[in-house]
Each structure stands twice: as C-alpha cells, then as structure tokens.
Nucleic acid binder design. Structure first.
Length: 401
DNA sequence: TCTGGGGTCCTAGGACCC
DNA sequence: TCTGGGGTCCTAGGACCC
C-alpha cells in the first residue's frame, strides 16, 4: 500500500456574510450588496414590521441604500457584484458609498451568521474530524487519513465537502489542498468562488513563486513595503535570498520564517482546541468624546464595557488577572495600559476598578473615538478567583469616570 | 464625511531573582 | 567594588488576521 502523504485543506466560505443574506433575500442575487455598518440607518432592514414583508419578496427599492448611511462603519463583506465597483472588505462605508451609491446595505445578523458557521463546520467534522477553526468563515482540515483524502491529491474529498455544504446550506466555498497550512491557504484563493485547487510540493516554482509576497499569510502591508524596498516583490524573488541575509534584515525569527515560507515549508499542526488568551470589548463612539466635557457619557460606556467583558468571561467560564484598557484618539493614535492583579477576577466591579486605575495613567486632553476593556492572563475559575472586589475598592474617590 | 470589533503573536525594556 | 550571565514576569506598542 502506498505511503500516505500529508494533505492539508484550507476551506474558505465565499463572501460568507453576504451569501447568508442572499439566502434570505434571493431577489438581491447579482446586485451589489454590502454587509456592514452599525445599527443606525439600517433600522429599516431590521424593523420587525418590515421583516414580515421581507419574507414576501420586499421590492428592491425598499432596501436601504449605502448612500443613505451616516456613520463610522466598515464593510464586512461585499457580494461579487459589489466588488466590481472596487468595494472590498474593511473599507469605510463612506468610501464605498462614493464608489457605488446604489449598493444595497444590510447589517450583520450575527446570530444568523453564527448559526450558519456552526452548520458548515458540523458538516465538515462529520466527514473529516480533524478540523481547526480559524474564525467564523474558514477552517483547516487534515485530509491525510480521511477516506478519499489522498485521491487526486485531495480533490475527491474536497468536492464531497463542497457539495455537501452546498446541498445542506445553499452556501458555496473554496478549498485548497496542499502539503501544509501555508500552501493550502494560498491554494484556496486560486479559484474563488466555488474553487478547488490542488497544490503539490513539486508545484512550488510554477504556482507559488510567481505570486506576490503579500499572498503569504503573515506578510501584511508593513512587511511587504519593507520587502519591496529591498527589491523583493514575488515569493520567487524572496526564495532566492540567503537565509542569513533575511535574518540580517528581519531578525532571527522573522528572517528564518520568511525563508521557510518562500520555500513552501510549514510544519504547523492542525490545532483542534485552544483556550483564549484574552477576552475584550471595545466601541467606537458615534462622535469623538472628550474626557472632561463628555465625562458622564464616557463613564457610562466604560461601565457598560466592563459589564460586557464580565458577562463574556462568565459565559465562557474564565476569570483573568490582567485588566487592560485601550484608547483611540481622534487622530487614530492608540494607547493601551494594563494592570496585573494579585488574583484572578471575573467581577464587573473589580474589572471596572482596575480599568479605572489604568485610565489614570493615560493622557486625556485629546478627544477619544474608541474605548476598550480587556481581560488577559485567563484561568478557569475555582483557583485564583477573587470573587467580588473588596468593598473598599469600590469607593476609591479618585476614579476618573 | 476616511478607517469596526475581536483576537493572536512578537519585540523590547525594566524589575527582580538566582 | 565591579562585573557577568540567565530566566521570568510585567508592560506598551505594533503587525497581522478574520
């Protein structure tokens, strides 16, 4: 019997958030639709009175248009029709409105998105149990030992998974199968949407080296800029460099990683379970707020964030001992402060108190656009939890908010 | 009219201990 | 008195990803 070779798949749902909405509103198919934004200006779409009518093929001209949106939201997903206008993920909605004013704008329906996310993942693990969750709309799957996982380099199994997901949910996905996660991730992008791409080790020069370095998961705008400045644009060009040269320019760790990545080497395992490192909540205000003039409003938001983080901790079954805050100023500059307590807590008041101490260590003359609260150094409750904060801690007079 | 929210990982300096 | 390591924890910032 032939030796099995390691086959890793990366599966990415096609325009996931938008596709889920299209299941509900099939009349929007082939139109530019954008998902994103906050609550405001979208009430029409979520108004209970209207949702009745939505089920009965609401006329197109009654859908909210992006040009009517006022706010600070960004795009989560755009349909392929919307992408024709240059609209893309993470783009500000205001900019997207200029590119395609008539695009339909729908808010993210998180419960629905999570429902479909759980559904497609359950379909996958029924077929191939070794799956790594990489977020709401993508996963890695180990094909190596699964029936059909070796046939045609994984294409047979990929087709089965793709078809089963589509038959059971109506959603399409793209799959790349390769010797490791790094290459599988790149392969899944080759034929989007509804694509299947198979990459073998021997395909490195032909299929991977012509690609831009930016296609490597982990090379972002900054690293790409630095590579460009060194005359390196493609993965092939990166692969021509000596490992020592890369280490000189990028440091030991990054240099060695760049070298391996350019040669298609990646030994990271599939990780099926992991504990979170931190749990946080943050919010961007509708308008920039001032620490003094908008003190009451900020204080209320601050307390709410602490309560939400405490609720999240409770629901997920964690406590933590490092409490942190994050501020973004009106010029988009960001600062963080954190404080490690003697013992873990999950209590909203204790979090609020520690976060309040952090806040005092930060300059507050400039207007703020974002405030966040984070709990890290997590543990399971039982050992290390302090419970409610001592009464004295709650009446410290010098709390800012 | 720029630029969300929830994460992970890395680096680097200082404190502190052995 | 000066001169060293190394290891771990804490903190701040930043790159990157979905």
């Amino acid at each position: 019997m032939a030796e099995k070779i390691r086959r890793i798949a990366h599966l990415d749902m096609d325009a996931f958030y938008a596709s889920v909405e299209l299941l509900r509103y099939p009349q929007l198919k082939d139109l530019p639709v954008v998902i994103g934004g906050g609550r405001r200006a979208l009430d029409a779409a979520t108004d209970p009175d209207q949702s009745e009518r939505l089920l009965h093929r609401i006329p197109l001209d009654e859908f909210p248009r992006i040009k009517d949106y006022v706010g600070r939201g960004v795009i989560t997903t755009a349909t392929y029709a919307a992408r024709q206008f240059g609209i893309g993920s993470a783009m500000g909605l205001m900019k997207a409105a200029r590119l395609c004013p008539q695009a339909i704008l729908l808010p993210v329906d998180f419960p629905e998105i999570r429902r479909y996310s759980r559904a497609f993942k359950a379909i996958i693990t029924d077929i191939a149990p070794l799956m790594e969750d990489r977020g709401i709309d993508e996963v890695y799957i180990d094909f190596t030992e699964v029936p059909g996982g070796q046939r045609e380099g994984g294409r047979v199994l990929a087709r089965l998974i793709q078809k089963t997901i589509f038959d059971q949910t109506g959603l399409s996905c793209s799959i790349g199968v390769a010797p490791n996660k790094l290459l599988a991730k790149m392969a899944s992008e080759f034929n989007k949407p509804k694509g299947i791409s198979i990459v073998y080790e021997k395909d490195l020069q032909e299929k991977i080296w012509p690609l831009a370095c930016r296609k490597i998961n982990g090379i972002g705008p900054k690293a790409d800029e630095k590579l460009q400045a060194l005359g390196i644009s493609t993965i092939g060009e990166l692969a021509q460099k000596e490992v020592d040269w890369l280490i000189d320019h990028f440091g030991q760790k990054t240099g060695a990683w760049l070298f391996d990545a350019a040669h298609g080497r990646d030994s990271r395992p599939i990780v099926m379970e992991s504990d979170p490192v931190s749990i946080s909540r943050e919010t961007t205000f509708e308008r920039d707020l001032h620490a003094v003039r908008d003190k009451a409003e900020l204080g209320a938001i601050f307390s709410r964030l602490c309560q939400q983080v405490a609720d999240d901790l409770q629901r997920k079954g964690y406590v933590g001992k490092t409490i942190g805050i994050k501020l973004r100023y009106d010029d988009f500059k960001c600062v963080t402060r954190d404080l490690t307590l003697a013992e873990c807590t999950g209590d909203a008041q204790a979090i609020r108190h520690a976060a309040g101490l952090c806040l005092k260590r930060v300059p507050l003359t400039q207007r703020l656009r974002l405030l966040g609260v984070r709990v890290a150094s997590l543990a399971r409750p039982g050992e290390g939890e302090t419970g409610p904060a001592p009464a004295a801690a709650n009446v410290l007079p010098d709390q800012l908010f």
